[in-house]
């Protein structure tokens, strides 16, 4: 009973933290545009918190640069369970145009932390980001919390 209530609450109140691990800022400004009155992310119960300790979802943007290799793992460890990682844009998936000779990036981000879902585009439109977040986030949150519970029960 309590667990079901928790799941319902989790579905409707999601805190998001943006981590720019070395991108061009394009995806970040599109994420800010999602907050604007036109797209209004908050009407779906998603709040931009930008604090990893509060967050349920980590939005990764940017190809992983040298400085971020260990810090990314630390931030992931600080985020409370259940957590979902969503890669926004091409950079965390393939490194985009920076994954060439001379570039100092270590894409993809899934080498460092588990990435649950990804949105393609350089950068994706705010509508694409919102639809992807809404498609993935609530379901993934509930599934993860249930999985965690089962592990606990087994113990």
């Amino acid at each position: 009973m309590l667990n079901r209530l928790k799941d319902i609450v989790r579905k409707t109140s999601i805190n998001v933290c943006i981590i720019n691990c070395g991108g061009c800022n394009g995806c970040d400004v599109e994420l800010v545009a999602c907050l604007s009155p036109r797209y209004d992310l908050e009407q779906y119960g998603i709040y931009l918190q930008n604090n990893p300790r509060d967050a349920d979802i980590l939005l990764l943007t940017g190809a992983v640069t040298e400085q971020w290799e260990d810090k990314l793992r630390r931030i992931y460890a600080k985020t409370p369970e259940p957590k979902v990682v969503l890669a926004v844009g091409n950079c965390p998936q393939s490194g985009d145009v920076f994954a060439q000779e001379g570039g100092r990036v270590n894409a993809p981000a899934s080498n460092y932390i588990p990435v649950d879902a990804a949105v393609s585009g350089c950068p994706p439109r705010p509508s694409e980001i919102i639809s992807a977040v809404l498609k993935v986030a609530p379901g993934a949150m509930v599934a993860k919390s249930q999985a965690n519970r089962e592990i606990k029960d087994d113990d």
Binding site: N90, Q93, S94, D96, V97, A118, S120, G121, C122
Partner: peptide, 8 residues
């Protein structure tokens, strides 16, 4: 086209 690499 690989969508995760395409910059449109």
């Amino acid at each position: 086209i690989n969508e995760s690499g395409c910059i449109r």
